[in-house]
Write a protein that binds this DNA or RNA. Sequence first.
RNA 1: UCCGGGGUGGCGAAAUUGGCAGCCGCGCUUGACUGUUAAUCAAGUGCCCGAAAGGGCGUGUGGGUUCGAGUCCCACCCCCGGAG
Length: 400
Amino acid sequence: MRSDPRRLEFEIDAREGAARAGRLLTAHGPVATPAFIPLATKGAVRTLDLGDVAGLGFELILGNTFHLFISPGAERIAELGGLHRFIGWDRALITDSGGFQVFSLAHGGVADEIKGRRGGAGASGGVLEIAERGVRFRSYLDGTERFMGPEESMDVQAKLGADIALAFDECTPFHADRDYTASSTERTHRWLERCLDWHGEHGPPEQAVFGIVQGGVHEDLRRESAQAVSATGVDGLAIGGTLGRDKPEMHGVLAMTAPLLPPEAPKHLLGIGEPDDLLAGIALGIDIFDCAVPTRLARHGMALAPLPASRFRFDLTKSGSATDEGPLAEGCPCPTCAVHTRAYLHYLSRAEAPTAARLLTLHNLTFLERLVAGAREAIKAGGFNGYRAAVMSGTAPWAA
RNA sequence: UCCGGGGUGGCGAAAUUGGCAGCCGCGCUUGACUGUUAAUCAAGUGCCCGAAAGGGCGUGUGGGUUCGAGUCCCACCCCCGGAG
């Protein structure tokens, strides 16, 4: 157990039901919440320069312990002045612990595991052993055997110098049975204690640590996990693990889990999400979200748009856009929509021009930033429910 | 005009030399993507009719040989190269 002073101030300005608007005060500046966090897994938001990311208004990005550990290595980054300096980002930074990458190494993506497809482009089955001490795996880069446990993860994150470190956990698969999920969740709790012990002794004083709540889809396990993580006095809590087979189940698990977390703590929903998921999470009191969807979809020719009937996606690669002179989304304030037509973006996407991925990434990140910015304003004005209903009925976040 | 080479899906091309035409790739269509091993992956795709099962038609054109022809023979059309 830790009894250190808090390294992360969290101020709540306004509440509406469980939803709240406020800010995280990190060593690298404030982060207005609710916030969406772009992924900079390998130290870069794919296709963008971090100057672009700051220009879009983001105050927090997420880097990854596992990938940076594999290359270029924590020592290298430490020698070069830490991750902020290495990548040229002076705002807040959170690093994921590597727990999810073990899952990914074994199963590919979340959807691959749920649907029983053994991993699209991933899933080379590089996990050798998951044991109490930690995880033995084979590097996807050069095949060498590597090891990561709670201490190693925290050591890497200390060297990276993230403002917020995530505790090392095991992301329990959807297909794991209840017994496995229970014992894995308990091990994650023991790993959290070891993370905090290591961090208390060696970690940067200004670095905050979030613990991760597991428990799969089981209410009692989620409750036990929420209590166990809360009891450690972490600076914040993250909800992890696979949350169910489909969206309704995911929202159910979320609705059951979120209220179990201490109300005053910052809450991070890991790996989610899509626009409706963000609003569902915000309604339940989630403060920060990270997700691969906006940036990955952009690289696959898919734009986010106020289209709830098509999961807020607009497929720009379809031939219907070939002669469409309108913008991606009417009234969108992003730099792409300010200049370009659907016809041009369609052409670029089909041509697999790198510029297409960049322009769509700018748009998609803007969409989510505007979505959460709108939620922040709505909560402060006491109109979040109306805002959510408007977005869910197809009103653009920048118009709401 | 003569000599030589060549005409196969939307495109580049295969076809074990007379044995289920179109392998493979591009393009196109559809699907997937939620703490990023994904600017990726999966499925389909000769043409026509049909919702489908299915049916019909297909290797420049027209004949011929053969149980069977993209492949062999004859004539013609077109393209490329060379010679006049």
